[in-house]
């Protein structure tokens, strides 16, 4: 119990630190938020231009929820990159904190930050397009957001390994992986339009199920029970990805300590 309390307190160090960083970089945060809003509006205007409400909603949901998932993913996946860049990686790794506590702190802040970010984008889009969400099932959408967050946290932890193992190329690989997820997950289109081999890949992206589920909930008002086909893959990914991510992170840390890759570069 004492160990748990100590680790939870240590987790809060990462929440507080990231909050302070957001505060100090507020100018950049505002700039990124403006960019996210502008990007979502630009994509959604394609639907508005077609005069197709369903297409508009499909694009709005794609833009808003991809924004959320990518914020959560980036925060966690870039945990190591940021510290390597600032030069604090060695200090964090020599502190008496277990890695799961570090990841818990980073994750809690990522989800909270992503939620606030996404609500702002959603409110702007809802006002701009005067969206009618009276038939939407928000509970089901929330269930998919939570399940999707868990899966994305797992993938984020696994991806955070890359900058640990490959000093510079790791951050580049993280970026490429995020781009691939964007491409194969049906963010702005149905995955049915993808080539066959890409459709196979889309089955392994949690974003595919999150976006499908959220669209069904917000556009058609479907409940969670009728979307079990999207729920169970997300549950399975969440159960597998997080423990697998933590295990893999531990192995990567050991590798970095063996090869001297924790040292500051950049």
């Amino acid at each position: 119990m004492a160990l748990m309390t100590r680790e939870l307190k240590a987790s809060f160090a990462f929440v507080e630190r990231n909050f302070n960083l957001t505060k100090r970089y507020w100018g950049w945060e505002v700039a990124f938020l403006v960019y996210a809003v502008a990007g979502a509006l630009a994509v959604s205007l394609i639907g508005a231009g077609q005069g197709d409400t369903r297409l508009l909603m499909t694009l709005v949901i794609g833009a808003v929820f991809w924004n959320y998932l990518s914020v959560v993913f980036s925060f966690i996946a870039e945990t190591v990159s940021w510290e390597r860049w600032e030069g604090t990686l060695e200090y964090t790794f020599m502190a008496p904190v277990r890695r799961y506590a570090q990841m818990l702190g980073s994750t809690v802040y990522a989800v909270a930050f992503g939620f606030v970010h996404t609500v702002v984008v959603l409110v702007v889009l809802a006002l701009f397009f005067e969206l009618d969400l009276s038939g939407a099932n928000f509970v089901t959408a929330a269930v998919f957001m939570v399940l999707g967050s868990v899966s994305f946290i797992g993938i984020g932890i696994m991806t955070a390994i890359l900058p640990l193992m490959y000093v510079e190329r790791g951050a580049q690989m993280t970026f490429v992986l995020q781009s691939v997820l964007l491409l194969i997950s049906g963010v702005y289109y149905s995955v049915d339009v993808l080539p066959g081999w890409m459709q196979v890949l889309s089955n392994f992206s949690p974003a595919t199920y999150v976006l499908h589920g959220v669209r069904a909930a917000l556009i058609d008002g479907q409940g969670t029970v009728s979307l079990l086909g999207d729920v169970w893959p997300l549950l399975l990914m969440g159960i597998v990805f997080i423990p697998l991510g933590l295990w893999a992170f531990g192995r990567a840390e050991r590798y970095a300590k063996r090869t001297g890759k924790l040292k500051r570069v950049g």
Binding site: R17, N20, L21, G87, T88, E90, Y91, M94
Partner: peptide
Amino acid sequence: NRVSVDAAFFKKL
């Protein structure tokens, strides 16, 4: 604890 030659901090903080 350790102090290294480069004072590694989050410089904006």
